[in-house]
Design a protein around this nucleic acid. Structure first.
Length: 954
DNA sequence: TGCGTCACG
DNA sequence: GACGTACGTGACGCAA
């Protein structure tokens, strides 16, 4: 390398000015972003964010370099008018098609660097600088295309890079600038390096090859020889054509033998000036960063030093310091104009479709939505796809619309559509294009639907999850209609309006194209507007990492689990159902006998009449509405008093519950297509970060009673396979020990003690050895109570002891574990001060109840606030394990599948031979799921077991 | 549709 | 000492 510093140059030297006195209309600076990243990464020691250990060395270095560049630029009198940072794309480029070994020797990027790639793009945008990339092209090609274009327009270009491959672009108006080494590279410097003018650099490179990029070139020929030959023969084609004239035997033979390889090498190093421009040049105009956004980003990354420098001006942004609270919410967004559903386009021919797809590529960020003929994604057939490429610019592409039932007496409407296969073939490259961000509302559904069409949508974001991260606990729903009303002051067309309601509701494929277009395209339009409005708030709210690490990866993971489903033995369920029926009939007869008349055992109201009025039993409790209660605890009390009917009712209720909720309906839920049951997991549905399961709910399959476990035994593995259940032991109590910093609890967990016995021993001063079961049971109830925000009433109820006795236990507990009271007081104080609590991973849980006028509701809020950081952190941890699991399984070469999640348990199905390996792997991933972001002061312990059915595995 | 009840963590 | 009470879910059947 002939790096030649320019003598006595100022830090960033001035360019020779061959444009007009006022400078050219366009002076474009192009930053080789990928070069910046790798330099930053390798130049700096491994640096992690203090708050959670996220590696941010490259982000930090990148931000510093970018900031310095911006400051230095401004100081010059020939500051750029336009500016962009250009990134490589991770996927294969057209060069791999020419030569499959191109860059094949490159090792994958370091593990610590990978999560920083998206952050660096965020950083670029936070600095108010355009970020450019394009699939199938390297950053160098994009740089080449802009450089050529601007040069030909009469503008000036400066390429901030030290990559010698870019030297072919240097010319009278195009310079390279190596900011690290303070080098300005013009024609003269290129000639020094390559021995030829920039226009011939490609030909020299073609001859000498490049071992780093694995460009073969001609063996034995280096830069010096190559330059000599090119200068002698004028150009490469002439050289190769006249190779026979070369005097040196070896050199002549090499050029003849390797002529094709040399031509191929030229193609590989030649940058493509015809690369499409990802953004028009006009869009790259230099702009000031938004001070709040930049400050919030740096704060989020923990880059306080740079944050202060930026805030103080530093010659750069005029920004004041970041506000400590998020920007106030606008009541509406009018920047993008009103929503007008009549403007949407129905795409019915290939030409129009291709035009939309081209516009989508150019846009880089689009929203989409799939319309289907079913609510459950597992069986949904595709009716159409809508795309929004800009606010107000959206279309609907129908694929399966048809007339309903052939009852069309009038002339049938024209239903000409592009065929299903053609639409899928056209959309697949777009939806899988890594350079086009796809935004969806409830992405899990669309991922599942499109996965059945052979499309793996990526990269993808989810407005529902962004809203959830920002406002969990503030609203019951993060559905699109609510979000639209909340943020856009727009009420989307109700589904019922286009499809009808109740029994007359039709499948979406029978909805005429015009209303279907209005409805479907509006969804995409609204989703895109929501994304543009809400996504920046993740940064200003300090919640970007929560979204990126705990939410955004989930839809793909859950979609896969839902698609897998689990096998259930319908015959076993049918036998149980019959058994339960018979016994219920017997119990009914007994109940009528005892009551002296028939009545509906399923009616709490009628039970109340029989028990409290006709039989004259004393009702112990009333329900919320003042009715006399008949729940299990009351019936148990009455049974304990020696009454016969309550026992019969309890037994009947148990069987009725099992039959009604489980045996009958689980069998009905088996998909005829897969012979398995596919639940639906809801994200964004709970306040704490937990998932929920429905249709059917597989998170509440019975386990606590012998009868109930018979249902669990019907969950089975395929022949030759086993189910493996892996569950966290006492995770919430462990988190309490960590978060509340309770020395005795931590010690007990570190020593692997029986935590409830240890609690009892500490509280009552009795040894663990030979402890009565009742003593341990009480301590266990207290431990659970603590996690729930204990009250004397609740504990008394749980243990069936007087309230003052329960109060005494709590008092003792707080005396023995003073740290718990501190934690509870601290949490209550915090939630009343700010209205939310956070998990150790940064998830925010709003608890507006603490501001209620009702004292009872405020107390409710306090207890929820005590519980939420524990339940929420446990939810965060199992999410982290689930997100890592697919790659871990793949890396281990296991065929095992993750099927179910039950809050602290994961259920897998694996070939029998894999059982042991899977148990080891699942334990490893789950027990270390908090790392490296959080170093827990207590170990996480996972128990795992394999068996033919879920009950035996549990 | 709201309520009571009960299955789970 | 009030206040109603453990935290978080979903599904069922009844009664309106």
């Amino acid at each position: 390398m002939t790096d030649t510093p320019i003598a006595d140059a100022p830090p960033i030297p001035d360019l020779p000015r061959d444009a007009t006195q006022d400078g050219p209309a366009v002076r474009l600076y192009l930053v080789d972003g990928s070069g910046f990243i790798f330099r930053a990464f390798h130049a700096l020691p491994p640096l992690t964010r203090k708050s959670d250990g996220l590696p941010i060395g490259a982000v930090s270095g990148f931000c510093n370099m970018l900031w310095k560049l911006l400051v230095d630029m401004k100081a010059q009198d020939d500051a750029p008018t336009h500016l962009a940072v250009v990134f490589d794309h991770s996927e294969k480029t057209f060069r791999n098609k020419l030569y499959d070994k191109y860059k094949a020797h490159r090792p994958p990027p370091p593990e610590d660097l990978v999560p920083q790639f998206p952050l660096v793009r965020d950083a670029t945008r936070a600095f108010g600088v355009h970020s450019l990339e394009l699939p199938g092209y390297e950053a160098d090609d994009i740089i080449a295309a802009y450089a050529c274009k601007v040069r030909d327009m009469g503008g000036e270009v400066r390429i901030i890079s030290s990559d010698k491959d870019l030297m072919q672009l240097v010319g009278d108006r195009v310079f390279m600038l190596d900011t690290m080494k303070n080098l300005l590279i013009g024609r003269e410097q290129v000639v020094e390096k390559f021995g030829v003018q920039p226009e011939k650099v490609v030909e020299v490179q073609a001859l000498c090859g490049d071992s780093v990029d694995n460009v073969p070139g001609a063996p034995g020929i280096g830069i010096k020889t190559a330059a000599l030959l090119i200068n002698e023969y004028g150009d490469l084609d002439t050289l190769l054509a006249r190779a026979g004239e070369i005097k040196q035997d070896k050199r002549r033979q090499t050029l003849i033998d390797f002529a094709d390889q040399i031509r191929l090498s030229r193609q590989l190093v030649q940058l493509d000036c015809d690369t499409p421009l990802p953004s028009p040049i006009d869009d790259l105009r230099v702009a000031e960063p938004t001070a709040e956004v930049l400050a919030a980003f740096l704060e989020e990354m923990g880059l306080h030093t740079l944050g202060r420098r930026v805030a103080s001006g530093g010659g750069g942004a005029t920004a004041p310091a970041a506000p400590s609270t998020p920007a106030p919410r606008p009541t509406s967004v009018t920047d993008h104009g009103p929503i007008d559903v009549t403007k949407y386009v129905c795409v019915r021919d290939l030409e129009t479709l291709d035009a939309w797809i081209a516009k989508a590529h150019a846009a880089g960020v689009i929203a989409f939505d799939t319309e289907t003929d079913s609510l459950s994604s597992a069986n949904a057939g595709l009716c159409g796809v809508s795309l929004a490429i800009a606010p107000g610019e959206a279309c609907y592409i129908p694929v399966g619309h048809e007339h309903e039932g052939g009852l069309e007496f009038d002339a049938p409407a024209d239903l000409t559509q592009i065929t299903h296969d053609e639409v899928i073939a056209r959309l697949k490259p777009l939806l899988e294009d890594p350079a086009v961000l796809k935004v969806a509302q409830n992405a899990k559904y669309d991922i599942a639907v499109l996965s059945r069409q052979g499309i793996n949508v990526s990269p993808i974001e989810d407005t529902m999850l962004i809203s959830y991260v920002l406002e969990a606990g503030l609203h019951k729903s993060h559905g699109m209609d609510e979000l639209s009303k909340r943020w856009l002051e727009h009420e989307p067309i109700p589904f019922k309006q286009v499809a009808g309601t109740g029994k007359a509701q039709k499948s979406f494929k029978h909805v005429p194209l015009e209303p279907a277009t209005c409805y479907a395209a509006e969804d995409a339009d609204v989703t895109l507007r929501l994304y543009l409005l809400l996504r920046p708030r993740l940064i200003t709210g300090g919640l970007l990492t929560v979204y990126e690490t705990l939410e955004r990866p989930m839809p793909a993971v859950l979609a896969q689990m839902e698609i897998e489903g689990i096998r259930i033995d319908p015959d076993q369920l049918a036998r149980l159902s019959h058994d339960f029926s018979v016994r219920m009939t017997e119990l009914e007869a007994q109940a009528y006998e005892l009551a002296g008349r028939p009545f509906n055992l399923g009616s709490p109201k009628q039970i109340g009449e029989v028990l409290y009025q006709e039989m004259g039993l004393a009702s112990k409790k009333t329900t919320a509405t003042g009715a006399q209660g008949t729940d299990a605890s009351i019936l148990e009390d009455l049974a304990a008093d020696g009454h016969a009917l309550p026992r019969v009712l309890l037994d009947w209720r148990q069987l009725s519950k099992l039959k009604g909720t489980y045996t009958d309906n689980l069998a009905a839920a088996i998909s005829p297509r897969t012979n398995r049951v596919h639940t639906s997991y809801a994200l964004g549905a709970t306040t704490t970060g937990r998932l929920s399961s429905s249709d059917p709910n597989l998170q509440n399959i019975p386990v606590r009673t012998e009868e109930g476990r018979k249902i669990r035994k019907a969950f089975i593995a395929e022949p030759g396979h086993v189910l493996i259940s892996a569950d966290y032991s006492q995770i919430e109590l462990r988190l309490l020990a960590h978060v509340g910093d309770i020395p005795q609890l931590k010690k007990a967990f570190l020593e692997g003690q029986d935590i409830h016995a240890a609690t009892a021993s500490e509280m009552f001063g009795v040894p663990i050895e030979g402890m009565p079961a009742e003593t341990r049971r009480r301590a266990k109830a207290i431990n659970f109570g603590i996690v729930y925000g204990i009250s004397a009433f609740g504990l008394a109820n749980q243990l069936s002891i007087p309230q003052d006795e329960a109060g005494a236990y709590i008092k003792t507990y707080f005396e023995r574990f003073p740290g718990i009271r501190t934690y509870m007081d601290r949490t209550k104080q915090a939630v009343r001060a700010q209205g939310f609590v956070s998990t150790i991973f940064g998830r925010k849980i709003n608890i507006p109840a603490v501001y209620s006028k009702s004292q009872a509701e405020r107390a409710f809020g306090d207890r929820a606030a005590i519980n939420a950081p524990l339940q929420g952190a446990a939810a965060d941890i199992i999410r982290r394990a689930m997100i890592r699991m697919p790659a871990a399984l793949k890396a281990s070469g296991l065929k095992a599948r993750m099927l179910l999640q039950v809050h602290d348990e994961l259920v897998f199905e694996a070939p029998e031979a894999e059982a042991d390996a899977l148990i080891t792997l699942a334990k490893q991933v789950m027990e270390h799921a908090a790392e490296p972001v959080v170093a827990l002061s207590v170990p996480l312990v996972v128990d795992a077991r394999a068996a033919k059915n879920w009950d035996d595995a549990h």
